[in-house]
Deep mutational scan, measured.
Amino acid sequence: MPVRRGHVAPQNTFLDTIIRKFEGQSRKFIIANARVENCAVIYCNDGFCELCGYSRAEVMQRPCTCDFLHGPRTQRRAAAQIAQALLGAEERKVEIAFYRKDGSCFLCLVDVVPVKNEDGAVIMFILNFEVVMEKDMVGSPAHDTNHRGPPTSWLAPGRAKTFRLKLPALLALTARESSVRSGGAGGAGAPGAVVVDVDLTPAAPSSESLALDEVTAMDNHVAGLGPAEERRALVGPGSPPRSAPGQLPSPRAHSLNPDASGSSCSLARTRSRESCASVRRASSADDIEAMRAGVLPPPPRHASTGAMHPLRSGLLNSTSDSDLVRYRTISKIPQITLNFVDLKGDPFLASPTSDREIIAPKIKERTHNVTEKVTQVLSLGADVLPEYKLQAPRIHRWTILHYSPFKAVWDWLILLLVIYTAVFTPYSAAFLLKETEEGPPATECGYACQPLAVVDLIVDIMFIVDILINFRTTYVNANEEVVSHPGRIAVHYFKGWFLIDMVAAIPFDLLI
């Protein structure tokens, strides 16, 4: 008679799926529990143990900040960024110097990925580790590398530091407007667009060049630039800015003055950032001319202004700041037409079709709590990747769950009947059967004279019903998954307890 339990259901295979997918890609990662103190490590794979030199037993239950890997060259700011990422709910990448158990130093890129439950609360953290440099290539500990984003994938490793954006290309926007319009339909740009040429040739750093990471940081200074100062900065030398009595002219307006920039070969870094931020506020060169004239017309309804409409929906549905990093990277690809469009465009503009998908598509409701890094690593669709929660398995109709209350009560009843059979069957065979043979035949009273025979008949009927119930009862397979398919249940029961239950259900007393 089957006594099969499996009270692990309803099970959740999400954690096993993450481990299996990460292991298949030869990654070095740990999984931490966000619900406990210090976000203790609950799993670390073999790749991480080989990377740091510690065994799994030495890593388990330690804080996922990996303070046991810190050393003299470990930056405090990087460690603080990892700790801050564990307090938030967004994906974050941090470069930090770690030390192995043998004392060797290596520069590592740590990717902190939160995993949320159905309520939107962070319950786990996945920390992925990628070695960037070994100890002989690690720089000085005073050099802070965590304020910069990861290198873009479309640049060669040897040319990542030679990417320079020439400031004269930004200063000569109005001069290039006529050349853009003359391109017409034969050019790649839309009317009114501004073409910015980027020099990728390796050259020595000069005062006129600005690194790509500095251009990325310009967006942080746009908020500090007032509207009046932006307007004066875009007017140009024809209309000098008016300053109040006793007030000095704005240095932001002076930063885009061609006369002032041409007199000296070098520009201050602050002026460069502010000038680029001011130019980015204009949607095209037409807006710059309109600002000089004193009238700013409404933005025209053409394809170039609607190019950012799908980007707005993608940004609203993005799951991490990696989408913004990807957008900034692609927006700086050289030799393309940049349409400086305000994100607050007309909502009635139709979304044009684009061959290049900048932001990841909208994630469906079932995966809105899973970050983009987890979705990318697992390579699963929205119909396959579940949320991290207890999910009731989908069972067929008329199927009994093996952990249901009805099955528990039924098993206790069958257990009592088995005990009765084990006690009274030998007793009936030894004593009652002998008395029946010696006594007179009682054929007239039937079952009324033999109450134990009636009980034995009921017990046999219950055993037959138990066999039928076992054909529709779920079970737990070797992978700790609840199986509810009727065919698989029948095959599993035939290979197991079916023969024993059938022999126990045969009414031998009635056959004798």
Rank of each mutant, 00 (worst) to 15 (best):
S351W: 07
A277V: 12
E130N: 14
A228V: 12
R100E: 01
E23F: 01
T162I: 05
F129Q: 01
R280L: 10
R273K: 13
V194W: 01
E208V: 06
M133W: 15
D199L: 01
T375I: 09
L127A: 01
G262L: 07
L107K: 13
A79Y: 02
A190Y: 11
C105I: 10
H221T: 10
E37Q: 07
S263P: 11
I288F: 14
R56C: 03
T337Y: 05
S318I: 07
V370D: 07
A285P: 14
S313T: 14
S275I: 14
F29M: 01
R269S: 11
P361S: 14
V36N: 11
N38H: 15
F22Y: 14
M133Y: 07
A185M: 14
P72L: 01
T74N: 01
A121L: 06
D355Q: 05
L343E: 05
T371Y: 08
S272D: 06
P205T: 05
W154S: 14
R366E: 03
C265M: 15
D321V: 14
A223Q: 05
G88P: 01
E50F: 05
D136G: 06
G53C: 01
S178W: 03
S243P: 06
P241R: 11
A217H: 13
G158T: 06
Q376V: 08
A303K: 12
L385G: 05
F48R: 01
L324C: 13
R328T: 12
K21N: 08
T145R: 12
N317G: 11
P151C: 11
E95Q: 13
A80W: 10
A169T: 12
G224M: 05
V377M: 09
N45L: 01
D136E: 06
V295T: 14
P245S: 15
S239Q: 14
A175Q: 15
E230F: 06
L256A: 07
L256G: 07
C49P: 01
R100D: 01
A156T: 15
A244H: 14
H70Y: 10
V194F: 12
E177V: 03
L267R: 06
P245Q: 05
F163M: 15
V198M: 05
G6H: 12
F68R: 01
S313D: 14
L210E: 06
I123W: 11
T13S: 08
L324W: 08
I333C: 15
V195A: 06
I123V: 09
P258G: 14
I333D: 15
L385T: 11
A244T: 10
L15G: 01
V295C: 15
I359S: 11
S272T: 09
A169S: 12
M291S: 09
A97S: 11
A175P: 14
G53V: 01
A57K: 12
S283L: 14
L248D: 13
L315Y: 14
G306S: 14
T17L: 13
I288K: 07
E214W: 04
A382N: 06
P114H: 06
L316N: 11
A40W: 05
M124P: 01
L385Y: 07
Y43F: 13
G345R: 06
V196I: 06
V279S: 14
R148I: 07
D323M: 05
I126L: 11
E177C: 05
P241L: 12
A190H: 06
A83V: 07
R4D: 13
W154E: 15
P334Q: 07
G189N: 15
D199E: 08
A79R: 10
L267P: 07
Q335P: 14
L248Q: 15
P10L: 07
C64N: 01
P227H: 01
T329R: 12
P150C: 06
R20C: 07
G236W: 05
L210I: 06
K344N: 06
D102V: 01
A185E: 12
F129P: 01
H309G: 14
G262C: 04
S322A: 09
V138P: 08
A190D: 15
K161S: 06
R280W: 09
V215I: 13
M308E: 14
T329G: 06
R77P: 15
R271A: 12
R292E: 14
A211N: 15
R366I: 12
N117E: 07
F348Y: 11
N45H: 01
A34V: 08
G184L: 07
S351P: 08
G6Q: 14
L316M: 08
M137I: 07
M308D: 05
G158H: 09
N45D: 01
E357S: 12
K116D: 06
R73A: 12
I359V: 07
E23I: 01
I19M: 06
L212Y: 06
D111C: 05
M218C: 15
L324F: 14
